[in-house]
Structures are given as C-alpha cells and as structure tokens.
C-alpha cells in the first residue's frame, strides 16, 4: 500500500484509540449501574455482590485494562439488559444500518452527479437556479420532521406506505427517502461547484482546442477531475449519515445500530454502548481507508508523491 494511504490510516487509527478511551470514561460518568439494576431496597451486601460479579468494584483503570484486553479478542462483555454478549447484539443490528446507509449513499451519489453536472454545464440557467434552490432546501430540512410529515402524508392520510418496521420493499421507501435529503442536497452542491471548477480549468481549453465534443469534455475531462473533490466530501458525508440513521431508525422503528445505541444509553448498558461506538468507529475507519485508496487511484499526483 502506498504512503498516502498508510499515513492517513495510522492517523485514523490513532483517532480510534482516543475515542475508545474517551467513551469508556464518559460512560462511567453516566451513573452507577447497580442503582439501575437492583431494586431500591437492595441491601449493601446484595449491591456488593452484584458489583463484584460484574467487576464494578475494581478500580476504573483495572476495569479499562480488562476491557481493552477484551476488545482485542472482540469480547465487549455481556449486555446487562439482554443477557447475551454485547457483540452479538451489535452484530445483529449492524447489517440493518449498513444496508440503509449503503442504499441511501449510492442513490444520493448517482442523483447528485447527474443533477450537479447538468447544473454546472450552464451555470445560472433556469435548471441550475431551480436545482440550487431545491438542493439548499433539502440540505436545510430537519430529517426527523421530514420523517414525521412523510408518515403523516403517506401512511396516515393516504395509507400507501407502512409506518414502521422492515420487510417488504415498501418499508424501505420512506426511510431511504428521508435519509437521502441531506446527503443529496449537499453532494449535488459539491458536484456542481467541482464541475464548474473543472470545466473552467485550463486543460478543458486544451481539450476544446483538440476538437473534443461536449460529452467528452464533460465526462472524460470534467467529471474525472471533479470526482476527486466529490469522493472526499462523500466520505465525510458517510460518517454524518450515521447521525441521520439514528433519527430515521428511531422514527421508523428499524432495529439498527442507531436504535440500539439510544436504547443502550437509556438503559446504561455500558457493554452494548461501547461495542456500538467501537463498531461504528471501526466501520468509519475502514471506510476512510477505502476512500483514501479510491482517491489515490483517481489522483496520480497523490499516488506517486
């Protein structure tokens, strides 16, 4: 692997470690789990026994050390609430979120490239103005509200789509549609700006002087260069997509990682919370590496320098 990817990889890995430390100690600050799981009138002995059996009576540093050792073995401890390994709960929820985010991202990218390129070909045309307005509007929409309005219209009033759950393709329409709002708006603006930049670049002049036609200029010369910017932004967006996924999963009752995490926070389920965060962070880390690889494939200047 080349140095660019390696350098970025180690940087993200470092971030990952910092996050792990941060989250462990923050989670400890949320409160004493013995208060939550034992009845109010539990005796001091009962409390001590509970704490000892779960290792809560050791110093925090020891607990953290034990935790870290566990992480190395993909052992995040048992869920206090579900009575099964935390990793199992997370692995069950993970594919749901991954599919939701993946489908949303793919659709947003394709649409953004088409709309953004068309808008960039003739800036300030009617199409460009309308597209710009709509993309800014969609990037400004609060996703939870869009979700509620969508339920109100399509499920409650019209009865076309189911309100919650997953299963049939119809269940996918509203969650994906809502989740697409922000990334689509943002990516379209980015594609447009990057394409305008690329089409104004001197090498496009050269291409025109060679006798190249419109489609060659847009797709071969413009888009290929604009993609460099688009890929970077799409990577950042993919991380923020998880933000939206939390909201969308909550509203539409999808058993994804966002839902699981909110539950874990409410139940003070350390093990699950930490496993969720770590898995999410790892997924984002992995995706960043993939994006760096894609970037270095697309940009020869990074590849060789």
């Amino acid at each position: 692997m080349n140095r660019f990817v390696l350098k970025h990889g180690t940087q993200s890995l470092f971030a990952l470690l910092c996050l792990l430390v941060l989250v462990f100690f923050l989670a400890r600050l949320t409160g004493d789990p013995t208060d939550l799981y034992l009845p109010m009138d539990a005796s001091i002995e009962q409390r001590a026994e509970f704490a000892a059996s779960h290792g809560f009576d050791d110093p925090v540093v020891v607990q953290f050390g034990r935790y870290l050792a566990g992480v190395m073995r993909f052992d995040f401890g048992d869920s206090l609430f579900q009575g099964r390994p935390a990793i199992d709960a997370v692995l069950a929820a993970f594919p749901v979120t991954l599919k939701l985010a993946g489908v949303t991202m793919a659709l947003s990218l394709v649409l953004a490239i088409v709309i953004g390129s068309l808008a960039a070909w003739r800036p300030r045309s009617i199409f460009d103005r309308v597209a710009s307005m709509l993309t800014i509007a969609s990037a400004s929409a609060p996703d939870f509200w869009v979700a509620i309005v969508a339920i109100l219209v399509f499920a409650v009033s019209l009865g076309w789509l189911p309100t919650s759950g997953m299963g049939s393709p119809a269940h996918w329409i509203m969650p994906v549609g809502v989740l697409m709002f922000r990334p689509l708006g943002l990516l379209t603006q980015v594609v447009r700006a990057a394409m305008i930049g690329a089409l104004a670049a001197p090498y496009v002049k050269t291409a025109r002087a060679k006798g190249a036609g419109k489609s060659r200029i847009i797709f071969v010369h413009g888009l290929r260069n604009a993609m460099l910017t688009v890929i970077t932004v799409a990577g950042d967006q993919a991380a923020t997509l998880i933000n939206g996924a939390v909201v969308v999963e909550t509203v539409f009752g999808w058993p994804g990682i966002g839902n699981l995490m909110i539950q874990a926070i409410q139940q003070r389920d350390f093990a699950v919370l930490q496993a969720c965060i770590l898995m999410t962070a790892f997924a984002i880390f992995f995706m960043n590496v993939l994006i760096d690889i894609a970037y270095s494939r697309l940009d020869p200047r990074v590849r060789t320098s």
């Binding site: 923050l26 933000n243 926070i265 962070a281 880390f285």
Partner: peptide, 22 residues
C-alpha cells in the same frame, strides 16, 4: 490537528448524545 481528526472521525450526533447523557 490530531485533536480535530479525533472529533471528525466519529458521527457528531452520537458523540453529543453520549456527552449530553452524562
């Protein structure tokens, strides 16, 4: 810069959720 990388590398909403709960 490394500090900002750490903040950037994780979804902001999740981070805020956890901190606010604390």
């Amino acid at each position: 810069m490394r500090g900002t990388d750490v903040i950037m590398s994780f979804p902001s909403l999740l981070m805020a959720l956890i901190v606010l709960y604390v």
